[in-house]
């Protein structure tokens, strides 16, 4: 035995809330994207735990796709951040309020 399944879910929940806080409270586009990464990481932990709990490999399969989606999101997000940085010279999301 390792631990109760609930403790794993609570660990994933704590990580998710830290990521949520980072994405909501920081005033920097890079930190917002990092917060989203932390949240995806927390979801992956919950999926792997569920995969072990039910002895089913579907959970691990989904984690593989989470990694692919995270890579996609980061590449497009960082390209947009570089675009914004060229326009405004800052990572502050408040300065970029025109979708032009």
């Amino acid at each position: 035995m390792i631990v109760p399944f609930g403790h794993l879910l609570i660990l994933a929940g704590i990580l998710f809330v830290i990521g949520l806080f980072c994405a909501l409270a920081r005033r920097s586009l890079i930190m917002i994207l990092l917060g989203v990464e932390i949240m995806l990481n927390a979801a992956a932990i919950a999926f792997v735990g569920g995969s072990l709990h039910w002895h089913d490999m579907e959970g691990q399969t989904i984690v593989l796709f989470i990694a692919a989606v995270a890579a996609t999101e980061v590449s497009v997000g960082l390209a947009m951040i570089v675009h914004v940085f060229r326009k405004t010279g800052s990572f502050d999301p408040v300065l970029f309020d025109l979708l032009k």
Partner: peptide, 28 residues
């Protein structure tokens, strides 16, 4: 952000601890 996050964490933890199935031990 902190208030909402903590509220979600408390509610989520209570839910996890209230469901009996989540008390099952994970076996390696």
């Amino acid at each position: 952000a902190a208030v909402l996050g903590l509220l979600y964490l408390v509610v989520g933890s209570l839910m996890v601890l209230a469901v009996p199935e989540t008390g099952a031990e994970l076996r390696p």
